[in-house]
Design a protein around this nucleic acid. Structure first.
Length: 456
DNA sequence: CTGGAATTGTG
DNA sequence: ACAATTCCA
Protein backbone atom coordinates (compact mmCIF):
# COMPACT_ATOMS: atom_id res chain seq x y z
CA UNK A 1 0.00 0.00 0.00
CA UNK A 2 0.97 3.66 -0.48
CA UNK A 3 0.72 6.94 1.39
CA UNK A 4 -0.13 10.43 0.20
CA UNK A 5 1.80 13.26 1.80
CA UNK A 6 -0.50 16.21 1.28
CA UNK A 7 1.31 19.56 1.34
CA UNK A 8 -0.67 22.69 2.23
CA UNK A 9 1.10 25.51 4.01
CA UNK A 10 4.27 23.72 5.06
CA UNK A 11 6.36 23.49 1.92
CA UNK A 12 9.51 22.02 3.39
CA UNK A 13 11.42 18.79 3.87
CA UNK A 14 13.30 19.56 7.08
CA UNK A 15 11.32 19.12 10.32
CA UNK A 16 8.08 18.47 8.50
CA UNK A 17 6.30 16.07 10.89
CA UNK A 18 3.81 14.86 8.27
CA UNK A 19 6.54 13.99 5.79
CA UNK A 20 8.81 12.65 8.51
CA UNK A 21 6.28 10.16 9.83
CA UNK A 22 5.18 9.12 6.38
CA UNK A 23 8.76 8.37 5.43
CA UNK A 24 9.19 6.18 8.50
CA UNK A 25 6.35 3.86 7.58
CA UNK A 26 6.90 1.00 5.16
CA UNK A 27 4.54 2.56 2.60
CA UNK A 28 5.76 4.28 -0.51
CA UNK A 29 5.04 8.01 -0.70
CA UNK A 30 3.10 10.08 -3.21
CA UNK A 31 3.70 13.79 -2.49
CA UNK A 32 0.71 15.89 -3.53
CA UNK A 33 -0.10 19.59 -3.65
CA UNK A 34 -3.69 20.67 -4.29
CA UNK A 35 -4.45 24.29 -5.10
CA UNK A 36 -7.95 24.40 -3.66
CA UNK A 37 -9.69 27.67 -4.48
CA UNK A 38 -13.08 26.32 -3.42
CA UNK A 39 -12.61 25.72 0.31
CA UNK A 40 -11.23 29.17 1.03
CA UNK A 41 -12.75 32.35 2.42
CA UNK A 42 -10.41 34.49 0.34
CA UNK A 43 -8.53 33.67 -2.85
CA UNK A 44 -4.80 34.06 -2.48
CA UNK A 45 -3.47 37.47 -3.43
CA UNK A 46 -1.36 38.04 -6.48
CA UNK A 47 1.92 38.33 -4.56
CA UNK A 48 1.18 35.21 -2.51
CA UNK A 49 0.52 33.20 -5.66
CA UNK A 50 3.85 34.31 -7.06
CA UNK A 51 5.63 33.14 -3.92
CA UNK A 52 3.65 29.91 -3.81
CA UNK A 53 4.51 29.13 -7.43
CA UNK A 54 8.23 29.41 -6.71
CA UNK A 55 8.04 27.66 -3.36
CA UNK A 56 6.37 24.69 -5.07
CA UNK A 57 9.05 24.54 -7.75
CA UNK A 58 11.64 24.44 -4.99
CA UNK A 59 9.77 21.79 -3.01
CA UNK A 60 9.33 19.64 -6.09
CA UNK A 61 13.07 19.78 -6.68
CA UNK A 62 13.73 18.72 -3.07
CA UNK A 63 11.40 15.78 -3.65
CA UNK A 64 13.36 14.70 -6.73
CA UNK A 65 10.52 15.91 -8.95
CA UNK A 66 7.99 13.53 -7.43
CA UNK A 67 5.45 16.18 -6.44
CA UNK A 68 2.06 15.95 -8.17
CA UNK A 69 0.05 19.14 -8.71
CA UNK A 70 -3.73 19.35 -8.72
CA UNK A 71 -6.26 22.13 -8.77
CA UNK A 72 -9.77 22.00 -7.37
CA UNK A 73 -11.81 20.54 -4.54
CA UNK A 74 -9.43 18.84 -2.09
CA UNK A 75 -11.85 16.01 -1.33
CA UNK A 76 -12.71 15.25 -4.98
CA UNK A 77 -9.07 15.31 -6.00
CA UNK A 78 -8.00 13.04 -3.14
CA UNK A 79 -10.78 10.52 -3.81
CA UNK A 80 -9.57 10.20 -7.39
CA UNK A 81 -5.94 9.71 -6.40
CA UNK A 82 -6.80 7.22 -3.69
CA UNK A 83 -8.41 4.88 -6.22
CA UNK A 84 -5.63 5.27 -8.73
CA UNK A 85 -2.67 4.70 -6.39
CA UNK A 86 -3.89 2.16 -3.79
CA UNK A 87 -3.64 4.63 -0.95
CA UNK A 88 -4.03 3.42 2.64
CA UNK A 89 -2.78 6.53 4.47
CA UNK A 90 -2.78 10.28 4.09
CA UNK A 91 -0.28 12.39 6.02
CA UNK A 92 -0.89 16.11 6.37
CA UNK A 93 -0.43 19.17 8.55
CA UNK A 94 -2.99 19.86 11.26
CA UNK A 95 -5.32 22.71 10.29
CA UNK A 96 -5.79 25.71 12.59
CA UNK A 97 -8.00 27.99 10.51
CA UNK A 98 -11.74 27.45 10.63
CA UNK A 99 -12.29 26.66 6.95
CA UNK A 100 -9.50 24.10 6.94
CA UNK A 101 -10.73 22.52 10.16
CA UNK A 102 -14.20 22.06 8.64
CA UNK A 103 -12.71 20.71 5.40
CA UNK A 104 -10.52 18.24 7.29
CA UNK A 105 -13.45 17.02 9.38
CA UNK A 106 -15.38 16.26 6.18
CA UNK A 107 -12.32 14.67 4.64
CA UNK A 108 -11.67 12.49 7.65
CA UNK A 109 -15.24 11.19 7.59
CA UNK A 110 -15.06 10.46 3.88
CA UNK A 111 -11.67 8.75 4.19
CA UNK A 112 -12.86 6.52 7.01
CA UNK A 113 -15.57 5.17 4.69
CA UNK A 114 -12.83 4.11 2.29
CA UNK A 115 -10.61 2.72 5.05
CA UNK A 116 -7.96 5.34 4.48
CA UNK A 117 -6.15 6.48 7.62
CA UNK A 118 -5.81 10.24 8.01
CA UNK A 119 -2.71 11.19 10.00
CA UNK A 120 -2.34 14.85 10.93
CA UNK A 121 0.52 16.59 12.74
CA UNK A 122 1.07 20.12 13.97
CA UNK A 123 3.56 21.51 11.47
CA UNK A 124 2.62 25.16 11.79
CA UNK A 125 2.49 26.45 15.35
CA UNK A 126 4.75 26.31 18.39
CA UNK A 127 1.69 25.98 20.60
CA UNK A 128 -1.53 24.27 19.62
CA UNK A 129 -4.30 26.72 20.64
CA UNK A 130 -6.55 23.99 22.02
CA UNK A 131 -4.21 23.41 24.99
CA UNK A 132 -3.74 27.07 25.93
CA UNK A 133 -6.53 28.28 28.18
CA UNK A 134 -6.85 30.39 31.33
CA UNK A 135 -7.55 28.78 34.71
CA UNK A 136 -11.27 29.28 34.14
CA UNK A 137 -10.99 27.35 30.84
CA UNK A 138 -11.69 30.38 28.68
CA UNK A 139 -9.26 31.64 26.04
CA UNK A 140 -6.82 34.47 26.64
CA UNK A 141 -7.54 37.84 25.05
CA UNK A 142 -4.41 39.68 26.15
CA UNK A 143 -1.06 38.91 24.61
CA UNK A 144 1.32 39.05 27.59
CA UNK A 145 -0.46 36.57 29.88
CA UNK A 146 -1.24 34.39 26.83
CA UNK A 147 2.41 34.26 25.87
CA UNK A 148 4.06 34.13 29.29
CA UNK A 149 1.65 32.13 31.43
CA UNK A 150 -0.20 30.24 28.71
CA UNK A 151 2.71 29.33 26.44
CA UNK A 152 6.22 29.85 27.87
CA UNK A 153 5.55 28.62 31.41
CA UNK A 154 3.37 25.71 30.47
CA UNK A 155 4.54 23.80 27.44
CA UNK A 156 7.81 23.47 25.55
CA UNK A 157 7.48 23.51 21.77
CA UNK A 158 8.21 20.17 20.07
CA UNK A 159 11.84 19.39 19.36
CA UNK A 160 12.57 19.54 15.63
CA UNK A 161 12.55 16.13 13.95
CA UNK A 162 15.16 16.96 11.35
CA UNK A 163 15.29 15.49 7.88
CA UNK A 164 13.25 12.42 6.97
CA UNK A 165 15.41 9.29 6.87
CA UNK A 166 14.81 8.11 3.35
CA UNK A 167 12.28 8.67 0.59
CA UNK A 168 10.66 5.77 -1.13
CA UNK A 169 8.40 7.31 -3.74
CA UNK A 170 5.44 5.80 -5.55
CA UNK A 171 6.09 5.76 -9.27
CA UNK A 172 4.12 8.77 -10.45
CA UNK A 173 1.58 8.01 -13.11
CA UNK A 174 0.55 11.50 -14.10
CA UNK A 175 2.09 14.39 -15.92
CA UNK A 176 0.75 17.20 -13.76
CA UNK A 177 2.77 20.38 -14.03
CA UNK A 178 3.08 23.39 -11.80
CA UNK A 179 1.84 25.57 -14.66
CA UNK A 180 -1.51 23.74 -14.53
CA UNK A 181 -2.13 25.54 -11.22
CA UNK A 182 -2.09 28.87 -13.11
CA UNK A 183 -0.74 30.73 -10.10
CA UNK A 184 1.07 33.46 -12.01
CA UNK A 185 -0.63 36.55 -13.43
CA UNK A 186 -0.42 37.08 -17.18
CA UNK A 187 1.25 40.44 -16.74
CA UNK A 188 4.67 39.60 -15.35
CA UNK A 189 4.83 42.40 -12.77
CA UNK A 190 6.62 39.97 -10.45
CA UNK A 191 9.75 39.78 -12.64
CA UNK A 192 11.12 42.63 -10.55
CA UNK A 193 10.91 40.37 -7.49
CA UNK A 194 13.14 37.68 -8.96
CA UNK A 195 16.42 39.25 -7.85
CA UNK A 196 15.09 40.30 -4.44
CA UNK A 197 14.23 36.92 -2.96
CA UNK A 198 15.64 33.44 -3.24
CA UNK A 199 12.57 31.30 -2.83
CA UNK A 200 13.78 27.97 -1.49
CA UNK A 201 13.99 26.06 1.76
CA UNK A 202 17.78 26.29 1.60
CA UNK A 203 17.70 30.08 1.39
CA UNK A 204 15.37 30.22 4.38
CA UNK A 205 17.92 28.31 6.45
CA UNK A 206 20.74 30.53 5.21
CA UNK A 207 18.78 33.68 6.07
CA UNK A 208 18.13 32.31 9.56
CA UNK A 209 21.81 31.47 10.07
CA UNK A 210 22.88 34.91 8.93
CA UNK A 211 20.30 36.60 11.15
CA UNK A 212 21.41 34.60 14.18
CA UNK A 213 25.04 35.45 13.52
CA UNK A 214 24.62 39.19 13.36
CA UNK A 215 21.56 41.42 13.26
CA UNK A 216 19.59 39.60 15.95
CA UNK A 217 21.98 41.14 18.49
CA UNK A 218 20.61 44.55 17.56
CA UNK A 219 17.04 43.35 17.06
CA UNK A 220 15.34 45.12 19.96
CA UNK A 221 16.46 48.56 18.83
CA UNK A 222 17.21 47.99 15.17
CA UNK A 223 13.85 46.41 14.31
CA UNK A 224 12.21 49.84 14.47
CA UNK A 225 14.32 51.41 11.73
CA UNK A 226 13.19 50.61 8.21
CA UNK A 227 16.48 51.72 6.66
CA UNK A 228 18.41 49.15 8.72
CA UNK A 229 18.50 45.47 7.97
CA UNK A 230 17.86 44.31 11.52
CA UNK A 231 14.71 42.27 11.02
CA UNK A 232 14.89 38.60 10.06
CA UNK A 233 13.14 38.87 6.67
CA UNK A 234 11.92 35.34 7.30
CA UNK A 235 8.22 36.22 7.13
CA UNK A 236 7.39 34.88 3.65
CA UNK A 237 9.32 31.68 4.36
CA UNK A 238 7.47 31.25 7.63
CA UNK A 239 4.14 32.01 5.96
CA UNK A 240 4.65 29.15 3.49
CA UNK A 241 6.21 26.84 6.05
CA UNK A 242 9.54 26.77 4.24
CA UNK A 243 11.26 26.81 7.60
CA UNK A 244 10.02 25.20 10.79
CA UNK A 245 9.09 27.33 13.77
CA UNK A 246 10.37 24.65 16.12
CA UNK A 247 13.71 24.73 14.38
CA UNK A 248 13.90 28.53 14.71
CA UNK A 249 12.85 28.35 18.36
CA UNK A 250 15.51 25.84 19.37
CA UNK A 251 18.16 27.60 17.29
CA UNK A 252 17.39 30.71 19.36
CA UNK A 253 17.63 28.64 22.55
CA UNK A 254 21.15 27.58 21.66
CA UNK A 255 22.32 31.21 21.69
CA UNK A 256 23.26 32.88 24.95
CA UNK A 257 20.24 34.46 26.55
CA UNK A 258 19.90 38.04 25.50
CA UNK A 259 16.99 40.53 25.57
CA UNK A 260 17.21 40.78 21.77
CA UNK A 261 16.55 37.08 21.45
CA UNK A 262 13.70 37.22 23.94
CA UNK A 263 12.20 40.06 21.93
CA UNK A 264 12.43 38.20 18.64
CA UNK A 265 10.82 35.17 20.29
CA UNK A 266 7.94 37.34 21.49
CA UNK A 267 7.39 38.48 17.90
CA UNK A 268 7.02 34.83 16.92
CA UNK A 269 4.62 34.77 19.86
CA UNK A 270 2.46 37.44 18.19
CA UNK A 271 2.12 35.18 15.18
CA UNK A 272 1.00 32.37 17.48
CA UNK A 273 -1.42 34.76 19.18
CA UNK A 274 -2.98 35.67 15.82
CA UNK A 275 -3.71 32.01 15.02
CA UNK A 276 -4.91 31.54 18.59
CA UNK A 277 -7.39 34.42 18.36
CA UNK A 278 -8.75 33.21 15.01
CA UNK A 279 -9.05 29.70 16.42
CA UNK A 280 -11.28 30.79 19.29
CA UNK A 281 -12.92 33.86 17.74
CA UNK A 282 -13.19 32.95 14.08
CA UNK A 283 -15.84 35.62 13.51
CA UNK A 284 -13.01 38.14 13.64
CA UNK A 285 -11.98 36.97 10.16
CA UNK A 286 -14.62 39.35 8.85
CA UNK A 287 -16.11 41.12 11.90
CA UNK A 288 -14.69 43.46 14.52
CA UNK A 289 -13.53 41.48 17.52
CA UNK A 290 -14.79 44.35 19.68
CA UNK A 291 -18.36 44.47 18.48
CA UNK A 292 -18.94 48.06 19.64
CA UNK A 293 -16.98 49.07 16.52
CA UNK A 294 -19.78 47.66 14.37
CA UNK A 295 -21.48 51.05 14.80
CA UNK A 296 -18.41 52.98 13.70
CA UNK A 297 -19.18 55.21 10.75
CA UNK A 298 -16.28 54.65 8.36
CA UNK A 299 -15.97 57.30 5.71
CA UNK A 300 -14.50 54.85 3.12
CA UNK A 301 -13.65 57.54 0.56
CA UNK A 302 -12.46 55.71 -2.53
CA UNK A 303 -10.32 58.71 -3.55
CA UNK A 304 -8.44 58.65 -0.25
CA UNK A 305 -8.15 54.87 -0.32
CA UNK A 306 -6.71 55.00 -3.86
CA UNK A 307 -4.22 57.71 -2.88
CA UNK A 308 -3.09 55.54 0.06
CA UNK A 309 -2.70 52.47 -2.17
CA UNK A 310 -0.60 54.40 -4.68
CA UNK A 311 1.52 56.09 -2.03
CA UNK A 312 0.21 59.54 -2.88
CA UNK A 313 -1.03 60.79 0.46
CA UNK A 314 1.42 63.68 0.66
CA UNK A 315 3.02 62.27 3.82
CA UNK A 316 6.50 61.04 2.81
CA UNK A 317 6.90 58.20 5.31
CA UNK A 318 3.45 56.79 4.47
CA UNK A 319 4.04 57.13 0.74
CA UNK A 320 7.52 55.59 0.94
CA UNK A 321 6.10 52.59 2.79
CA UNK A 322 3.21 52.12 0.35
CA UNK A 323 5.68 52.27 -2.52
CA UNK A 324 7.91 49.74 -0.78
CA UNK A 325 4.91 47.41 -0.60
CA UNK A 326 4.03 47.88 -4.28
CA UNK A 327 7.58 47.60 -5.55
CA UNK A 328 8.94 44.84 -3.35
CA UNK A 329 5.96 42.85 -2.06
CA UNK A 330 7.17 43.55 1.44
CA UNK A 331 6.88 46.29 4.04
CA UNK A 332 8.88 46.89 7.19
CA UNK A 333 6.92 46.06 10.34
CA UNK A 334 6.87 49.56 11.84
CA UNK A 335 5.79 50.94 8.49
CA UNK A 336 2.90 48.46 8.45
CA UNK A 337 1.72 49.99 11.70
CA UNK A 338 2.21 53.58 10.51
CA UNK A 339 0.43 53.10 7.16
CA UNK A 340 -2.38 51.07 8.74
CA UNK A 341 -2.96 53.66 11.45
CA UNK A 342 -3.00 56.39 8.79
CA UNK A 343 -5.59 54.58 6.67
CA UNK A 344 -7.90 53.65 9.51
CA UNK A 345 -7.62 56.77 11.64
CA UNK A 346 -6.60 59.71 9.49
CA UNK A 347 -8.51 58.57 6.40
CA UNK A 348 -11.36 56.80 8.25
CA UNK A 349 -11.22 53.80 5.94
CA UNK A 350 -12.46 50.46 7.31
CA UNK A 351 -9.54 48.20 8.35
CA UNK A 352 -10.99 45.43 6.14
CA UNK A 353 -10.15 47.45 3.01
CA UNK A 354 -6.56 47.96 4.13
CA UNK A 355 -6.37 44.33 5.09
CA UNK A 356 -7.43 43.21 1.62
CA UNK A 357 -4.84 45.48 -0.03
CA UNK A 358 -2.05 44.03 2.12
CA UNK A 359 -3.45 40.57 1.41
CA UNK A 360 -3.07 41.15 -2.33
CA UNK A 361 0.34 42.84 -2.24
CA UNK A 362 2.37 41.14 0.48
CA UNK A 363 4.53 38.16 -0.41
CA UNK A 364 4.25 37.12 3.24
CA UNK A 365 0.48 37.73 3.49
CA UNK A 366 -0.61 35.45 6.30
CA UNK A 367 -4.34 34.95 6.82
CA UNK A 368 -4.23 35.09 10.62
CA UNK A 369 -1.44 37.63 11.14
CA UNK A 370 -2.88 40.03 8.57
CA UNK A 371 -6.36 40.05 10.10
CA UNK A 372 -5.18 40.14 13.70
CA UNK A 373 -2.61 42.82 12.88
CA UNK A 374 -5.11 45.09 11.17
CA UNK A 375 -7.62 44.70 13.97
CA UNK A 376 -4.85 45.46 16.43
CA UNK A 377 -3.91 48.74 14.72
CA UNK A 378 -7.51 49.71 14.11
CA UNK A 379 -8.18 49.29 17.81
CA UNK A 380 -10.98 46.82 17.08
CA UNK A 381 -9.02 43.71 18.06
CA UNK A 382 -7.66 41.94 21.13
CA UNK A 383 -5.19 43.72 23.36
CA UNK A 384 -5.28 46.38 20.68
CA UNK A 385 -3.71 49.76 20.38
CA UNK A 386 -6.39 52.02 21.86
CA UNK A 387 -8.31 53.81 19.14
CA UNK A 388 -7.11 57.19 20.36
CA UNK A 389 -3.47 56.18 19.83
CA UNK A 390 -2.97 57.72 16.41
CA UNK A 391 0.48 57.56 14.88
CA UNK A 392 1.79 60.93 13.74
CA UNK A 393 3.47 60.18 10.39
CA UNK A 394 5.72 63.26 10.60
CA UNK A 395 7.07 62.28 14.02
CA UNK A 396 7.30 58.59 13.07
CA UNK A 397 9.32 59.55 10.01
CA UNK A 398 11.61 61.88 11.94
CA UNK A 399 12.13 59.38 14.73
CA UNK A 400 12.58 56.13 12.81
CA UNK A 401 13.98 57.40 9.53
CA UNK A 402 16.00 60.28 10.95
CA UNK A 403 18.53 60.18 8.11
CA UNK A 404 15.76 59.97 5.53
CA UNK A 405 17.35 56.99 3.80
CA UNK A 406 14.20 54.90 3.64
CA UNK A 407 11.99 57.83 2.63
CA UNK A 408 14.36 58.90 -0.16
CA UNK A 409 14.82 55.36 -1.42
CA UNK A 410 11.15 55.30 -2.41
CA UNK A 411 10.47 59.03 -2.87
CA UNK A 412 13.69 60.16 -4.58
CA UNK A 413 12.12 63.37 -5.89
CA UNK A 414 12.45 64.77 -2.36
CA UNK A 415 16.24 64.46 -2.42
CA UNK A 416 16.80 68.23 -2.47
CA UNK A 417 14.53 68.89 0.50
CA UNK A 418 16.60 69.61 3.64
CA UNK A 419 16.44 66.73 6.12
CA UNK A 420 14.70 68.99 8.61
CA UNK A 421 11.74 69.29 6.25
CA UNK A 422 11.80 65.83 4.66
CA UNK A 423 8.73 64.60 6.53
CA UNK A 424 6.89 67.92 6.06
CA UNK A 425 8.08 69.16 2.66
CA UNK A 426 5.11 71.54 2.32
CA UNK A 427 6.76 73.76 4.94
CA UNK A 428 9.87 73.97 2.77
CA UNK A 429 8.44 74.75 -0.62
CA UNK A 430 5.04 74.71 -2.23
CA UNK A 431 6.21 73.84 -5.72
CA UNK A 432 7.95 70.51 -5.28
CA UNK A 433 7.45 67.55 -7.60
CA UNK A 434 5.36 65.86 -4.92
CA UNK A 435 1.65 65.41 -4.21
CA UNK A 436 -0.26 67.65 -1.82
CA UNK A 437 -1.46 66.23 1.47
CA UNK A 438 -4.85 64.60 1.08
CA UNK A 439 -5.80 65.39 4.69
CA UNK A 440 -4.61 67.73 7.39
CA UNK A 441 -3.10 65.85 10.31
CA UNK A 442 -4.76 67.75 13.11
CA UNK A 443 -8.19 67.95 11.47
CA UNK A 444 -8.26 64.28 10.54
CA UNK A 445 -7.07 63.29 13.99
CA UNK A 446 -9.79 65.37 15.67
CA UNK A 447 -12.33 63.94 13.26
CA UNK A 448 -11.28 60.37 14.08
CA UNK A 449 -11.55 61.03 17.80
CA UNK A 450 -14.99 62.55 17.28
CA UNK A 451 -16.18 59.46 15.39
CA UNK A 452 -14.69 57.30 18.10
CA UNK A 453 -16.49 59.23 20.85
CA UNK A 454 -19.81 58.36 19.17
CA UNK A 455 -19.40 54.61 19.65
CA UNK A 456 -18.17 54.66 23.26
C1' DC B 1 -2.36 59.10 -45.34
C1' DT B 2 -2.00 54.30 -43.76
C1' DG B 3 -1.23 49.61 -42.09
C1' DG B 4 1.89 46.92 -39.75
C1' DA B 5 5.95 47.05 -36.58
C1' DA B 6 7.88 48.66 -32.51
C1' DT B 7 7.29 50.58 -28.16
C1' DT B 8 4.99 51.65 -24.00
C1' DG B 9 2.14 50.92 -20.12
C1' DT B 10 -0.13 47.93 -17.19
C1' DG B 11 -1.07 44.85 -10.87
C1' DA C 1 -0.05 38.67 -21.95
C1' DC C 2 -2.32 42.24 -24.06
C1' DA C 3 -4.10 46.63 -25.42
C1' DA C 4 -3.08 51.29 -26.56
C1' DT C 5 0.00 54.34 -28.65
C1' DT C 6 3.70 55.84 -31.49
C1' DC C 7 6.77 55.12 -35.30
C1' DC C 8 7.82 54.81 -39.99
C1' DA C 9 8.27 53.07 -44.85
Amino acid sequence: MNSIVLFKNNLRINDNPALFHASKSKNKILPVYIYDDIHVKKQLGSASRYWLHNALISLNKSLNFNLSFYRGDTIDVLMKIIKKYEISDIYCEQPFLKNDIILFDQLKLKLSMFNVKFNIYNCTLLWDPQYILKKDNTPYKVFTPYYKKGCLEKIKPDMPLGMPCKFNFVKKNNDSKIDDLKLLDKFRWYDKMDNQWNISENSAEKILDLFLESSIYNYKKGRDFPALNDTSKLSPYIRFGMISLNKIWYALDRLNFDRNIAHYKSELGWREFSYYLLYYFSFMETQNLQTKFDNFNWENSSEKFDAWKKGETGYPIVDAAMKELWETGYMHNRMRMVTASFLVKNLLVDWRLGESWFWDCLLDADYASNIAGWQWTAGTGADAAPYFRIFNPILQGEKFDHEGKYTLKYIPQLKDVPLKYLQKPWEYSSNLDYVNRIVDLKDSRDNALYHYSLIK
